[in-house]
């Protein structure tokens, strides 16, 4: 039998697709699929929200506190004053379905959150920056706006379904990336909700004080801080760009004819 020398033929066992083309196709295709599924999950959360009445939410989360919350002493005067202020503001929200609870979180980052069951968390960092009751009233009113729109459940629901989705699909290899992606996505989604909560909060402040002076002073201050390092900060921050917010609030006050000057109520601590 004759032996016919022959070298291995190229292009049989190895696909001639360029690795970068393969990478690009996969990344683009998977991104489309991921976005589609994420949107579908968000839609499902909306449907679920429709079926969870406020009474059920309140019953579920009545005494609930986030595990990582570091609360201040219950005798703290700031806690007492903030609770009083929330109660007074909520008085102007006819038939509010929640009994609001205020807690102060021992954190230096200025922030306020609306959590399920009517829980409002204000950080010490925020209280340190607030200089009048009117400023604080707007922040609290804004959080009440989140409750009215049920954003707090929406955010929680989206956070849960999206992180579950990412955890199941991504596995361990790229999980370090996915965490930040989730954060950015969630923050991106909440911008319209923030504007809507702003409108509601400003209306409450006007109803309570008869004017909207100092309501947005905190944002003006943050806007100035933002200018030191623009771009990245406003993109990653939880709330829309502070400057845009101030503009929108001023427009609203002008449109409604609310006085932008008035008597400032000092802080009682």
């Amino acid at each position: 039998m004759k032996f016919i020398p022959r070298q291995p033929r190229e292009g049989i066992n190895v696909s001639d697709t360029h690795p970068l083309v393969e990478a690009g196709t996969l990344v683009a295709g998977l991104t489309l699929i991921f976005v589609f599924i994420a949107l579908l999950l968000i839609f499902l959360v909306e449907i679920a929200l429709y079926f969870i009445p406020v009474e059920k939410e309140v019953a579920l989360f009545e005494d609930w506190l986030p595990e990582d919350l570091i609360t201040v002493s219950p005798a703290d005067e700031r806690l007492h004053q903030a609770q009083l202020l929330v109660d007074r503001l909520a008085f102007h929200w006819a038939d509010a379905p929640y009994t609001f609870r205020v807690e102060i979180d021992d954190s230096d980052v200025a922030n306020a959150m609306a959590l399920p069951g009517g829980l409002i968390i204000v950080t010490e960092g925020l209280l340190d920056q607030v200089e009048s009751e009117n400023e604080l009233a707007f922040v609290l009113g804004h959080e009440l706006g989140h409750f009215r729109n049920r954003d707090h459940l929406r955010a929680l629901g989206r956070g849960i379904v999206l992180s579950l989705f990412l955890a199941t699909t991504m596995g361990n290899d790229v999980s370090s990336i996915s965490v930040t992606v989730t954060d950015l996505t969630l923050r991106g989604f909440s911008r319209q909700q923030e504007s809507s909560a702003d409108e509601f909060g400003l209306a409450l402040v006007y109803t309570h004080y008869g004017h909207v002076d100092e309501a947005w002073r905190l944002f003006e201050k943050w806007d100035n801080d933002d200018r030191i390092m623009p771009g990245v900060v406003s993109y990653t921050s939880t709330h829309p760009d502070a400057g845009d917010r101030v503009e929108k609030l001023k427009d609203q006050a002008l449109r409604e004819g609310w006085p932008i000057e008035g008597l400032i109520t000092g802080l009682k601590w």
Binding site: S15, L26, G29, L30
Partner: peptide, 23 residues
Amino acid sequence: FKRVIAGLRAIVGGRIKTYEPLL
């Protein structure tokens, strides 16, 4: 690089083209 692309491929299935030249 090959591992990450193969990881992405594993989600939808199909030929793992980046491993072919390796083997």
